[in-house]
Amino acid sequence: MKEIEIKSVLQVFDSFDELQPDIQELMRQSISIRDKAYAPYSEFLVGAALLLENGEIVLGNNQENACYPSGLCAERTAIYHAGANFPEVSILKMALSAKSLKYQLLTPTPPCGACRQAIAEYEVKQKQPIEIYFMGETGKVVKSSSLSNLLPLIFDNSYL
């Protein structure tokens, strides 16, 4: 038997103010679109802002449905919009913010598993990592230089 060690490296910023100005702006946009999410069932709002290689910023928020599996997370809403409208343009950075209408969310909230898989697909497609910044409503911000830190053993097209 052989053991392997998987290591993830994340950076944690104590506040929004520690971020570079361009990331602050991207995060502001994720917060703005987050507050427009359609989440009447979970009351959990998520916003995503993607910076594309061509300078475009693509926004998305979660969209719920009474038939729960029919909804879509903010990350996938944004990333699929980018893929549909800018299919040959790489995604450089992604800013995510989450907020609960039931309690104050101070914990940085990473993408769910389904969103991690979708982000992984685009990292593989574009052959370059996507920087991911995520936060709760306020407080600390976490940065991952690649989705591989959040999902180290991805399932990709090499298995098909």
Rank of each mutant, 00 (worst) to 15 (best):
E64Y: 05
G83L: 12
G55F: 10
G136S: 08
Q24R: 15
F13G: 00
I91V: 15
Y133L: 03
A118N: 07
A37Y: 00
S8V: 08
Y80Q: 14
Q117L: 13
A118V: 12
L45M: 04
Y80M: 15
V58R: 01
D22V: 08
A49I: 03
E75S: 11
K102F: 10
A39N: 13
V124R: 04
T107H: 12
M1W: 11
A95K: 05
S145H: 11
K125D: 06
Y133I: 02
S100I: 08
I130V: 15
L96M: 15
V89N: 06
I31E: 04
A39C: 13
N149Q: 15
L96F: 06
L92P: 01
P111Y: 12
G139T: 06
I31V: 15
N61I: 00
M94S: 01
A66E: 12
C73I: 08
L106H: 11
N61T: 02
I119V: 11
Q128F: 06
F13L: 05
K36I: 05
R28H: 05
C73P: 06
A48Q: 02
S8T: 13
K99R: 13
A118R: 02
L92A: 03
S145D: 15
I79S: 13
M94G: 01
E75P: 05
L59S: 00
F134T: 04
P111V: 09
V142I: 15
I23C: 04
P40S: 06
Y38C: 08
L50G: 02
S70V: 06
A114R: 14
E53K: 09
E64S: 06
Y68G: 06
E53R: 06
G71S: 04
E43L: 12
L160Q: 12
Y41I: 10
Y80F: 14
L59V: 02
C73M: 12
G113D: 10
Q20L: 14
G136R: 05
A39P: 04
L106A: 10
S8Y: 06
E64R: 03
